[in-house]
Design a protein around this nucleic acid. Structure first.
Lengths: 114, 114
DNA sequence: ATGCGTTATGCTCCTCCTCGCATAACGCTC
DNA sequence: GAGCGTTATGCGAGGAGGAGCATAACGCAT
Protein backbone atom coordinates (compact mmCIF):
# COMPACT_ATOMS: atom_id res chain seq x y z
CA UNK A 1 0.00 0.00 0.00
CA UNK A 2 1.51 3.38 -1.08
CA UNK A 3 1.85 6.46 1.08
CA UNK A 4 -1.61 7.18 2.44
CA UNK A 5 -2.43 10.56 3.91
CA UNK A 6 -5.55 11.82 5.72
CA UNK A 7 -7.18 15.09 4.76
CA UNK A 8 -10.18 17.02 6.01
CA UNK A 9 -12.12 20.16 5.29
CA UNK A 10 -14.63 22.18 7.28
CA UNK A 11 -16.70 25.02 5.86
CA UNK A 12 -19.95 26.94 6.24
CA UNK A 13 -22.65 27.10 3.61
CA UNK A 14 -25.67 29.27 3.03
CA UNK A 15 -28.09 27.67 0.61
CA UNK A 16 -25.57 25.29 -0.91
CA UNK A 17 -22.95 27.97 -1.54
CA UNK A 18 -19.69 28.28 0.36
CA UNK A 19 -19.80 31.23 2.73
CA UNK A 20 -16.69 30.55 4.81
CA UNK A 21 -13.88 28.03 4.47
CA UNK A 22 -10.39 27.51 5.78
CA UNK A 23 -8.87 29.01 2.65
CA UNK A 24 -11.20 32.00 2.68
CA UNK A 25 -10.40 32.71 6.30
CA UNK A 26 -6.71 32.52 5.42
CA UNK A 27 -7.38 35.13 2.77
CA UNK A 28 -9.02 37.47 5.26
CA UNK A 29 -6.18 36.96 7.72
CA UNK A 30 -3.70 37.74 4.96
CA UNK A 31 -5.52 41.03 4.38
CA UNK A 32 -5.15 41.82 8.05
CA UNK A 33 -1.47 40.89 7.93
CA UNK A 34 -0.55 42.87 4.81
CA UNK A 35 -2.99 45.76 4.88
CA UNK A 36 -4.26 45.31 1.34
CA UNK A 37 -6.20 42.78 -0.68
CA UNK A 38 -3.64 42.95 -3.49
CA UNK A 39 -0.81 41.93 -1.19
CA UNK A 40 -2.98 39.24 0.41
CA UNK A 41 -3.79 37.72 -2.97
CA UNK A 42 -0.12 37.73 -3.90
CA UNK A 43 0.79 36.07 -0.61
CA UNK A 44 -1.66 33.23 -1.27
CA UNK A 45 -0.62 32.96 -4.91
CA UNK A 46 -4.00 33.77 -6.45
CA UNK A 47 -5.02 36.53 -8.88
CA UNK A 48 -6.45 39.67 -7.34
CA UNK A 49 -9.56 39.02 -9.41
CA UNK A 50 -10.19 35.74 -7.66
CA UNK A 51 -9.49 37.10 -4.18
CA UNK A 52 -11.83 40.00 -4.68
CA UNK A 53 -14.60 37.72 -5.96
CA UNK A 54 -14.29 35.47 -2.92
CA UNK A 55 -14.49 38.40 -0.54
CA UNK A 56 -17.58 39.71 -2.27
CA UNK A 57 -19.18 36.26 -2.16
CA UNK A 58 -18.50 35.96 1.54
CA UNK A 59 -19.95 39.39 2.24
CA UNK A 60 -23.15 38.80 0.28
CA UNK A 61 -23.68 35.29 1.62
CA UNK A 62 -22.99 36.16 5.22
CA UNK A 63 -24.80 39.47 4.93
CA UNK A 64 -21.86 41.16 6.64
CA UNK A 65 -19.39 43.79 5.52
CA UNK A 66 -15.98 42.18 5.93
CA UNK A 67 -13.55 44.68 4.45
CA UNK A 68 -13.18 48.39 5.06
CA UNK A 69 -11.66 49.42 1.75
CA UNK A 70 -10.28 52.62 0.31
CA UNK A 71 -9.08 53.14 -3.26
CA UNK A 72 -6.63 56.01 -3.65
CA UNK A 73 -4.84 57.73 -0.81
CA UNK A 74 -1.42 57.11 0.72
CA UNK A 75 0.12 54.04 -0.90
CA UNK A 76 -2.67 53.90 -3.44
CA UNK A 77 -5.24 52.52 -1.04
CA UNK A 78 -5.72 49.84 1.58
CA UNK A 79 -8.13 47.33 3.11
CA UNK A 80 -8.83 46.58 6.76
CA UNK A 81 -10.96 43.93 8.42
CA UNK A 82 -14.17 45.13 10.03
CA UNK A 83 -14.85 44.18 13.66
CA UNK A 84 -17.62 41.87 12.41
CA UNK A 85 -15.08 40.08 10.21
CA UNK A 86 -12.76 39.51 13.16
CA UNK A 87 -15.64 38.13 15.17
CA UNK A 88 -16.70 35.69 12.45
CA UNK A 89 -13.10 34.57 11.93
CA UNK A 90 -12.73 33.87 15.64
CA UNK A 91 -15.93 31.83 15.71
CA UNK A 92 -14.85 29.86 12.68
CA UNK A 93 -11.54 29.03 14.33
CA UNK A 94 -13.29 27.78 17.46
CA UNK A 95 -15.30 25.43 15.23
CA UNK A 96 -12.49 24.15 13.04
CA UNK A 97 -9.38 24.13 15.21
CA UNK A 98 -8.29 20.67 16.23
CA UNK A 99 -10.42 18.79 13.71
CA UNK A 100 -7.49 18.10 11.43
CA UNK A 101 -5.38 16.89 14.34
CA UNK A 102 -8.18 14.62 15.53
CA UNK A 103 -8.42 13.07 12.08
CA UNK A 104 -4.64 12.64 11.97
CA UNK A 105 -4.67 10.88 15.33
CA UNK A 106 -7.44 8.50 14.34
CA UNK A 107 -5.66 7.81 11.06
CA UNK A 108 -2.49 6.86 12.91
CA UNK A 109 -4.46 4.46 15.06
CA UNK A 110 -5.85 2.69 11.98
CA UNK A 111 -3.03 2.95 9.48
CA UNK A 112 -0.14 3.55 11.86
CA UNK A 113 3.09 2.89 9.98
CA UNK A 114 6.02 4.17 12.00
CA UNK B 1 -27.42 36.75 8.66
CA UNK B 2 -29.11 34.07 6.50
CA UNK B 3 -29.39 30.36 7.29
CA UNK B 4 -25.86 29.18 7.94
CA UNK B 5 -25.00 25.49 7.86
CA UNK B 6 -21.79 23.65 8.79
CA UNK B 7 -20.28 21.05 6.49
CA UNK B 8 -17.22 18.83 6.66
CA UNK B 9 -15.38 16.26 4.60
CA UNK B 10 -12.78 13.66 5.45
CA UNK B 11 -10.86 11.65 2.87
CA UNK B 12 -7.60 9.81 2.21
CA UNK B 13 -5.10 10.77 -0.46
CA UNK B 14 -2.16 9.07 -2.07
CA UNK B 15 0.10 11.53 -3.80
CA UNK B 16 -2.49 14.29 -4.07
CA UNK B 17 -5.19 12.04 -5.53
CA UNK B 18 -8.31 10.92 -3.68
CA UNK B 19 -8.07 7.26 -2.71
CA UNK B 20 -11.01 7.01 -0.31
CA UNK B 21 -13.80 9.40 0.59
CA UNK B 22 -17.19 9.30 2.24
CA UNK B 23 -18.95 9.13 -1.10
CA UNK B 24 -16.65 6.43 -2.45
CA UNK B 25 -17.19 4.31 0.63
CA UNK B 26 -20.94 4.74 0.16
CA UNK B 27 -20.49 3.42 -3.35
CA UNK B 28 -18.68 0.32 -2.12
CA UNK B 29 -21.31 -0.26 0.53
CA UNK B 30 -24.01 0.05 -2.13
CA UNK B 31 -22.26 -2.68 -4.10
CA UNK B 32 -22.37 -4.89 -1.05
CA UNK B 33 -26.04 -4.08 -0.53
CA UNK B 34 -27.17 -4.66 -4.11
CA UNK B 35 -24.75 -7.25 -5.38
CA UNK B 36 -23.75 -5.41 -8.53
CA UNK B 37 -21.95 -2.23 -9.50
CA UNK B 38 -24.70 -1.32 -11.94
CA UNK B 39 -27.35 -1.38 -9.22
CA UNK B 40 -25.05 0.48 -6.83
CA UNK B 41 -24.49 3.26 -9.36
CA UNK B 42 -28.21 3.55 -9.94
CA UNK B 43 -28.86 3.71 -6.20
CA UNK B 44 -26.45 6.63 -5.85
CA UNK B 45 -27.76 8.32 -8.97
CA UNK B 46 -24.53 8.28 -10.96
CA UNK B 47 -23.74 6.72 -14.34
CA UNK B 48 -22.19 3.26 -14.31
CA UNK B 49 -19.25 4.78 -16.18
CA UNK B 50 -18.45 7.10 -13.32
CA UNK B 51 -18.89 4.44 -10.64
CA UNK B 52 -16.61 2.05 -12.43
CA UNK B 53 -13.94 4.72 -12.88
CA UNK B 54 -14.01 5.53 -9.17
CA UNK B 55 -13.65 1.91 -8.19
CA UNK B 56 -10.71 1.46 -10.52
CA UNK B 57 -9.08 4.61 -9.15
CA UNK B 58 -9.47 3.38 -5.60
CA UNK B 59 -8.00 0.01 -6.45
CA UNK B 60 -4.95 1.39 -8.23
CA UNK B 61 -4.29 4.09 -5.64
CA UNK B 62 -4.74 1.83 -2.65
CA UNK B 63 -2.99 -1.04 -4.36
CA UNK B 64 -5.81 -3.33 -3.27
CA UNK B 65 -8.36 -5.36 -5.17
CA UNK B 66 -11.70 -4.11 -3.90
CA UNK B 67 -14.26 -5.87 -6.09
CA UNK B 68 -14.59 -9.50 -7.01
CA UNK B 69 -16.37 -9.16 -10.33
CA UNK B 70 -17.83 -11.53 -12.86
CA UNK B 71 -19.30 -10.59 -16.23
CA UNK B 72 -21.76 -13.09 -17.56
CA UNK B 73 -23.35 -15.85 -15.57
CA UNK B 74 -26.64 -16.00 -13.65
CA UNK B 75 -28.32 -12.60 -13.77
CA UNK B 76 -25.71 -11.36 -16.24
CA UNK B 77 -22.96 -11.03 -13.68
CA UNK B 78 -22.28 -9.61 -10.24
CA UNK B 79 -19.75 -7.86 -7.99
CA UNK B 80 -18.81 -8.64 -4.40
CA UNK B 81 -16.56 -6.81 -1.99
CA UNK B 82 -13.24 -8.49 -1.21
CA UNK B 83 -12.28 -9.06 2.44
CA UNK B 84 -9.60 -6.36 2.02
CA UNK B 85 -12.30 -3.93 0.91
CA UNK B 86 -14.41 -4.63 4.00
CA UNK B 87 -11.36 -4.10 6.19
CA UNK B 88 -10.49 -0.76 4.59
CA UNK B 89 -14.10 0.41 4.83
CA UNK B 90 -14.20 -0.45 8.53
CA UNK B 91 -10.99 1.46 9.19
CA UNK B 92 -12.28 4.45 7.29
CA UNK B 93 -15.45 4.47 9.36
CA UNK B 94 -13.46 4.42 12.59
CA UNK B 95 -11.60 7.50 11.35
CA UNK B 96 -14.55 9.51 10.07
CA UNK B 97 -17.49 8.61 12.29
CA UNK B 98 -18.45 11.37 14.69
CA UNK B 99 -16.48 14.13 12.98
CA UNK B 100 -19.56 15.64 11.37
CA UNK B 101 -21.43 15.55 14.67
CA UNK B 102 -18.52 17.21 16.46
CA UNK B 103 -18.51 20.00 13.90
CA UNK B 104 -22.27 20.39 14.24
CA UNK B 105 -21.99 20.64 18.01
CA UNK B 106 -19.25 23.28 17.85
CA UNK B 107 -21.24 25.19 15.26
CA UNK B 108 -24.26 25.28 17.54
CA UNK B 109 -22.10 26.66 20.36
CA UNK B 110 -20.92 29.52 18.14
CA UNK B 111 -23.91 30.28 15.94
CA UNK B 112 -26.64 28.74 18.07
CA UNK B 113 -29.97 30.15 16.92
CA UNK B 114 -32.78 28.19 18.52
C1' DA C 1 -1.47 68.13 -14.18
C1' DT C 2 1.06 63.64 -13.92
C1' DG C 3 2.14 59.42 -11.88
C1' DC C 4 1.42 55.69 -8.78
C1' DG C 5 -0.79 51.71 -6.43
C1' DT C 6 -4.99 50.15 -4.91
C1' DT C 7 -9.91 49.03 -5.30
C1' DA C 8 -13.53 47.62 -8.53
C1' DT C 9 -15.51 45.20 -12.65
C1' DG C 10 -16.04 42.88 -17.30
C1' DC C 11 -14.62 39.42 -20.46
C1' DT C 12 -12.23 35.40 -22.65
C1' DC C 13 -9.58 31.19 -22.42
C1' DC C 14 -8.32 26.87 -20.50
C1' DT C 15 -8.62 22.95 -17.68
C1' DC C 16 -10.87 19.60 -14.96
C1' DC C 17 -14.74 16.74 -14.06
C1' DT C 18 -18.91 14.51 -14.94
C1' DC C 19 -22.38 13.01 -17.86
C1' DG C 20 -24.06 10.52 -21.57
C1' DC C 21 -23.66 7.58 -25.58
C1' DA C 22 -21.62 3.71 -27.97
C1' DT C 23 -19.44 -0.66 -28.11
C1' DA C 24 -17.39 -5.15 -26.94
C1' DA C 25 -16.82 -9.33 -24.14
C1' DC C 26 -18.50 -12.57 -20.93
C1' DG C 27 -21.28 -16.60 -19.38
C1' DC C 28 -25.53 -18.33 -18.04
C1' DT C 29 -30.65 -19.57 -19.63
C1' DC C 30 -33.83 -21.03 -22.94
C1' DG D 1 -27.45 -20.36 -31.28
C1' DA D 2 -30.25 -16.20 -29.55
C1' DG D 3 -31.18 -13.26 -25.78
C1' DC D 4 -30.18 -11.02 -21.48
C1' DG D 5 -27.77 -8.23 -17.93
C1' DT D 6 -23.45 -7.29 -16.25
C1' DT D 7 -18.60 -6.00 -16.48
C1' DA D 8 -15.20 -3.32 -19.15
C1' DT D 9 -13.54 0.62 -22.10
C1' DG D 10 -13.40 4.58 -25.51
C1' DC D 11 -14.91 9.03 -26.85
C1' DG D 12 -17.21 13.57 -27.27
C1' DA D 13 -20.35 17.21 -25.10
C1' DG D 14 -21.27 20.36 -21.52
C1' DG D 15 -20.75 22.94 -17.10
C1' DA D 16 -18.06 24.95 -13.27
C1' DG D 17 -14.27 27.30 -11.69
C1' DG D 18 -9.91 29.63 -11.91
C1' DA D 19 -6.38 32.10 -14.65
C1' DG D 20 -5.19 35.86 -17.12
C1' DC D 21 -5.89 40.29 -19.49
C1' DA D 22 -8.00 44.79 -19.90
C1' DT D 23 -10.09 48.83 -18.07
C1' DA D 24 -11.93 52.53 -15.07
C1' DA D 25 -12.10 55.17 -10.75
C1' DC D 26 -10.06 56.91 -6.69
C1' DG D 27 -7.05 59.97 -3.85
C1' DC D 28 -2.62 61.20 -2.36
C1' DA D 29 2.45 62.79 -3.69
C1' DT D 30 5.35 65.31 -6.67
Amino acid sequence: MPRLRPRSKVWLEVGGDVALSEWRVELLEAVEAHGSLTAAAQALGVPFRTAWDRVREMESRLGIKLLDTQSGGPGGGHSVLTPEAREVIARFHRIVDGIGELVDRRFQEEFGEK
